[in-house]
Design a binder for these strands. Structure first.
Length: 216
DNA sequence: TGTCCGATTGGT
DNA sequence: CCAATCGGACAG
């Protein structure tokens, strides 16, 4: 809460950040735990933030849906093999950036893809970044590519330490009455048996969630 | 060097 | 359902 009073957003509250131990837990635990937490980007243009309402776990090197499948680092995936609690940012379809939190035990390149946020701060800056001054709030960060557009996340933040001052997470929990649901991950038709792993978490029924908003 | 393709999105 | 669009992965 306190972090989001406008005065404090100009100088983000360091104490609000997750401790390193948060990212040391199993990746599926981290993935479920970030639901309800906030992602904050303090950029030169201003600060934007959103409550995480949808995330997916990628459990390389065995997960056929993960970029780290096979276990060999490449130029693109280098960050996934690096320190936990840092950003793995990649470009998809030559058009959109996607943001992940690097996780996993030692030697396991894993990550949590942030798929959707409920906008919390800097909505007009978000709208300005996509050139849509009238875009409804719930659509601004609905989808991994869109949230990077509106949050101003690009390759510039590749490998960024999420405990730093630019891009960071602030703990939060789902609100009363909100339920965390899980499902298969989206758009990984090539992942064979890993297609069916229920490694997507989301706040049931939340309007900012991309794809299916309910189980079943 | 050349070819193939995607952890998406927006429009038809 | 379909195309846009381009950096990276990998084969040769």
């Amino acid at each position: 809460m306190s972090v989001f009073h406008s005065r404090e957003c100009a100088a983000p509250d360091l104490a609000g950040r997750f401790p390193p131990e948060f990212y040391a837990r199993p990746t599926l635990t981290v993935c479920r735990s970030v639901i309800g937490s906030y992602l904050v980007h303090a950029s030169e243009k201003g600060t934007t933030a959103g409550r995480i309402v949808e995330a997916e776990a990628y459990l390389g090197p065995h997960d056929k849906g993960a970029h780290s499948f096979g276990g060999r680092p490449t130029e693109r995936t280098r960050a996934m093999f690096g320190d936990k609690g840092h950003a793995y940012v990649f470009l998809i379809y030559g058009a959109y950036w996607c943001f992940n939190i690097v996780c996993g035990p030692a030697g396991k390149p894993q990550a949590v893809l942030i798929r959707a946020l409920e906008p919390a701060l800097g909505l007009d800056l978000m709208r300005a970044r996509i050139g849509k001054p009238d875009a409804p709030a719930e659509s601004l960060c609905r989808g991994p590519g869109k949230l990077c557009l509106t949050m101003g996340i690009t390759k510039e933040l590749y490998g960024e330490d999420l405990r730093g001052d630019r891009l960071f997470l602030v703990p939060g929990r789902p609100r009363r009455g909100e339920t965390i649901a899980r499902s298969v991950r989206l758009n990984i038709d090539y992942a064979e048996e890993y297609i069916h792993k229920p490694w997507r978490f989301f706040i049931q029924g939340n309007r900012s969630v991309s794809g299916p908003r309910r189980m079943g």
